[in-house]
């Protein structure tokens, strides 16, 4: 897959302090990129640089292989964004806002507006000024506005803020649909892993302005996150059984009493049976799940992410 967006050593300093530090991001065409990090990690600043609102101190952004400059206004036609908080001309109605948006974007498909509103399930808003909307409604309207012009890259900064659980579920469906049916590429930021782990194809983890890791979810998911943990006082005997009787190689001795078996060719029952046959006394034998959350907590040092 080709990269739709790539940043190289992207850096932004404010008064000598690096808000974003040498970020190398690669967003592939058609994927959902989850941009994960605690509050104040620099997610919004990166997104603002991508949308030309903030100018990088150093580094480059490439969009569709083309280098972005201060005057790359044309590129903005191919993006749809919500940055920070969905803002509207709030004395106007939702429809007036969307019409204005179309005019400014140079996009004149009248049907698109209705479709977008339907997509985010925003109804009964006829003549109310946006001022009277709840945050959840504004969030939906913001998504409708961003999607309306059928952008190739959809940038959503914390799009799930202010939505109720049902709304979150609905929006997840919408994101998935936009990605799969419309082939849009989505860049979604969040400080909550749970929000994006289910839909993201790639996750980029940022902390204190540094992109710690950029990893495909498939790799993490496929990375043997399930294992069987056995606790025994006779671990050397158990290792012998694992190695020679069961011919297993993919296991790890964690400490003198704990062994983790990552091999998924053997079931818990078979393992138990084999060990008992050899008369090895087991204190416990259980299936464990090394969750994604652990993975990211590890990465980010624990505070304020999950």
């Amino acid at each position: 897959m080709t990269n739709i967006l790539r940043t190289q050593n992207l850096t932004k300093t404010y008064q000598g302090k690096e808000a974003v530090n040498s970020v190398n991001m690669n967003i592939k065409q058609g994927e959902i990129y989850g941009f994960l990090g605690p509050n104040g990690a620099g997610k919004t600043t990166v997104m603002k640089m991508i949308t030309n609102l903030v100018k990088p101190t150093y580094g480059e952004i490439e969009f569709f292989g083309e280098k972005m400059t201060e005057r790359s206004y044309e590129m903005l036609k191919r993006m749809g964004c919500i940055i920070e908080y969905p803002v509207f001309y709030d004395k106007l109605t939702a429809k007036e806002n969307l019409i204005l948006h179309g005019e400014y974007m140079g996009y004149y498909d009248k049907q698109a507006m209705g479709e977008a509103l339907e997509l985010v399930k925003l109804t009964g808003i006829d003549n109310k000024p946006v001022k009277q909307f709840s945050l959840g409604m504004k969030q939906r309207l913001g998504i409708a506005r961003a999607v309306m012009t059928k952008p190739e890259l959809l940038i959503l900064d914390e799009p799930i803020n202010g939505l109720d659980p049902l709304g979150i579920k609905e929006m997840r469906e919408v994101f998935r649909m936009l990605s799969q049916e419309y082939g849009m590429t989505l860049l979604i930021s969040s400080h909550l892993l749970a929000e994006i782990e289910q839909i993201a194809d790639t996750i980029g983890v940022i902390r204190e302005g540094v992109l710690l890791e950029e990893v495909a979810m498939q790799t993490i998911r496929g990375g043997n996150t399930e294992y069987i943990e056995l606790i025994t006082n006779e671990s050397s005997k158990a290792v012998y059984v694992l190695e020679h009787k069961l011919k297993l190689t993919n296991f790890k001795v964690m400490d003198p009493r704990t062994i983790r078996v990552y091999d998924d060719s053997i079931s818990q029952r078979e393992l138990n049976k084999a060990l008992v046959m050899e008369d090895i006394e087991l204190e416990s034998l259980s299936k464990m799940n090394h969750s994604l959350e652990d993975y990211f907590l590890n990465l980010i040092g624990g505070d304020g992410i999950a």
Binding site: M79, E84, V87, D90
Partner: peptide, 14 residues
Amino acid sequence: KNNTITLLFMYPIS
């Protein structure tokens, strides 16, 4: 003040 400038400046217009 209302931050709508972020919206305006994200349009493909100088």
